[in-house]
Simulated scan of single mutants.
Amino acid sequence: MARDLQFPLVRTVGFDGALVTFADRMSENANRAALAFRSEVDHLQWDEVTESSASLGSTFVRFDTQRVSHQQMLEKLQHLIGQKDWYNTPLPSGRKLWRVPTVYGTDLAPQLDDAAAAAGLTPEEAIRRLGQSRVRVLTIGFAPGQPYLGPLGPEFNIPRLPSLTPMVPEGALVLAISQFVLFSGPTPTGWRHVGQTAFRCFRPERADTFPLRPGDELVFTPVSREELQHIRANNTDNTGGATCEEIAP
């Protein structure tokens, strides 16, 4: 069973992949380890590695089986694991802090009140706490450029909805299980729609198609409905009024 496994755990995945798993559930230090380990693999520039990525608590490495065997790759990754305490390793440099104007509640994000009640908070207190939360891009997936963000405070460890919302728009900020997801396109969801932004996570018309990177941090700053409408009317660069700065090492 999962609780009997010893982490970090190194396994092969498919024909040409290896997975280094740091925990069997998402936590801040497991995600930190996954991001730091992936960054180190990229920094080492091993000739046999063709691709890497990080998820909530794991690092995936794709490798050239003509250059290295599965066993050799596993041994190489296991050796790297032993070089340091990855759970307490600093996060990679070059990360950015984004501040994203966000309307909480109203008809633009109609499930804020429900989420607040599930968290045992008033809507006003939920907005205050969510608007002050500084969350990390834990991983990107499900849709192009779409971030999973967290962790939020334990009060927001609320379950998904029992049924799907038929559609939320691009830029929707949704909440469940102590995480935000910022939707990169219109989609059905079982997560609660608590905020609305004009931020675009997927910009195929630009060189920086995916503005967010794992390890970046975001604050979803509360604004009024009127402010968001003004941002949308003048959103020529598709940032949705967001500002960003590099996080100091």
Rank of each mutant, 00 (worst) to 15 (best):
R3C: 05
S52C: 12
F210V: 04
T106K: 02
D42Y: 01
H79W: 11
E246I: 08
W46H: 11
A233G: 02
A116Q: 09
Q83Y: 05
R213D: 03
A23F: 10
S55V: 11
D237A: 08
P154H: 03
Q111V: 07
A34H: 01
N157T: 10
V13P: 03
L108W: 12
V174I: 12
T102P: 03
L35F: 11
D107W: 00
R128F: 11
E226K: 01
L74A: 15
L164A: 14
G215Y: 07
T139N: 09
V103R: 00
A248C: 02
L212F: 06
T102M: 04
E75K: 10
P188Q: 12
R99A: 03
H230V: 02
L121D: 08
R99I: 12
P186G: 06
L175W: 06
L74R: 13
S69I: 13
P151I: 14
A115Y: 02
E155Q: 13
D85L: 04
D42N: 11
W86T: 09
G94Y: 05
V135Y: 06
V61A: 14
E75A: 11
P123T: 06
P110V: 03
M1N: 07
H230P: 00
V174F: 02
T209I: 06
R32M: 14
P166D: 14
V61M: 14
V61E: 14
L97R: 12
G82M: 04
A172H: 03
T187A: 13
N29T: 14
D208W: 00
T187M: 13
Y104P: 02
A176E: 08
V49E: 12
L161T: 00
I81M: 14
L19W: 10
R38W: 10
S55W: 09
L77N: 11
E170A: 13
E51Q: 13
Q72H: 14
Q83D: 01
F7T: 06
L5R: 15
P92W: 10
D85R: 06
T236V: 13
E155A: 10
P101V: 01
A18S: 15
R225G: 03
R129W: 09
L182G: 05
